[in-house]
Computed example of a mutant assay.
Amino acid sequence: MSTKKIVCVWIGKNASEKEFYQEYLQFDYENDEVSNFGKEAALDYYDEDFIESWWFKKLEVAKLNEYNEELLDSEFFFDDLLRELEHKNLEDNNFITFLFGEISNNSANEFLFDYNGLSSPSNTLEFVFKKEYEI
């Protein structure tokens, strides 16, 4: 049986690496709230076990290519993502976030199959890519 999977990708800018990982991506479990990333991306909830985020001093396609091998299922979407990013102005961005979902016996983040991007513009976050694939 094949597993239907999806990846959604956002790019953005955050003040510092520490703030990005320790504040922007962290869930507020005490108040039962999604992370600031989740709020900005218009995600009511997501399974944080399926997220990968990288912070750089400056986001560059060449730098991303160096991390290709470290990313889950990259062989199914990474080249397409890089082609998409080549058409974007990355100069003011310093992070990239990948959120994975799947429909299987152990489904996770299946709402991503219906996700259409940000409902309103954001100063720090841009939705740039969505790809479905099967394994």
Score class of each variant (00 low, 15 high):
123 N>S: 13
124 T>D: 12
115 Y>S: 10
130 K>Y: 04
107 S>R: 06
126 E>I: 11
128 V>C: 09
107 S>Q: 08
105 N>I: 12
119 S>E: 12
131 K>Y: 05
105 N>Y: 03
115 Y>G: 09
122 S>H: 02
132 E>P: 04
110 E>L: 06
130 K>I: 11
109 N>G: 07
130 K>P: 07
125 L>G: 10
110 E>M: 10
131 K>I: 09
104 S>A: 15
110 E>V: 11
113 F>L: 14
114 D>P: 02
108 A>H: 04
131 K>L: 15
113 F>Q: 08
104 S>N: 11
114 D>H: 06
132 E>L: 08
122 S>Y: 00
105 N>C: 07
133 Y>R: 01
126 E>F: 02
124 T>K: 04
112 L>Y: 00
123 N>T: 10
125 L>E: 06
118 L>I: 06
115 Y>P: 09
105 N>G: 08
124 T>N: 11
120 S>I: 13
115 Y>C: 10
120 S>M: 10
132 E>K: 03
126 E>M: 05
126 E>L: 12
130 K>W: 01
109 N>I: 06
113 F>W: 04
119 S>N: 10
118 L>Y: 01
121 P>S: 12
131 K>G: 12
121 P>A: 14
109 N>L: 10
123 N>P: 02
127 F>G: 00
110 E>Y: 08
117 G>L: 05
110 E>K: 07
116 N>S: 15
115 Y>Q: 07
129 F>H: 01
112 L>W: 00
123 N>H: 05
128 V>S: 02
114 D>N: 14
126 E>G: 00
132 E>I: 13
113 F>A: 11
112 L>D: 01
123 N>D: 15
112 L>V: 05
131 K>W: 03
116 N>V: 15
119 S>A: 11
132 E>F: 02
122 S>A: 09
105 N>R: 05
130 K>H: 05
106 N>I: 08
104 S>P: 10
133 Y>L: 08
110 E>D: 15
106 N>D: 13
108 A>P: 00
133 Y>C: 03
121 P>D: 13
126 E>S: 13
133 Y>V: 09
119 S>F: 07
108 A>V: 15
128 V>Q: 02
106 N>W: 03
117 G>C: 11
110 E>N: 12
113 F>T: 12
107 S>M: 11
115 Y>D: 10
114 D>I: 05
106 N>Y: 05
111 F>R: 01
112 L>S: 04
124 T>M: 03
112 L>K: 01
106 N>G: 04
104 S>Q: 07
130 K>M: 12
107 S>I: 13
121 P>R: 01
117 G>Y: 02
130 K>S: 15
116 N>D: 15
129 F>L: 11
111 F>V: 13
120 S>A: 09
130 K>R: 13
130 K>L: 10
104 S>D: 14
116 N>R: 14
121 P>L: 08
125 L>R: 02
113 F>I: 15
109 N>Y: 00
105 N>V: 13
108 A>I: 14
107 S>F: 07
108 A>D: 05
112 L>T: 04
130 K>D: 04
126 E>W: 00
114 D>L: 13
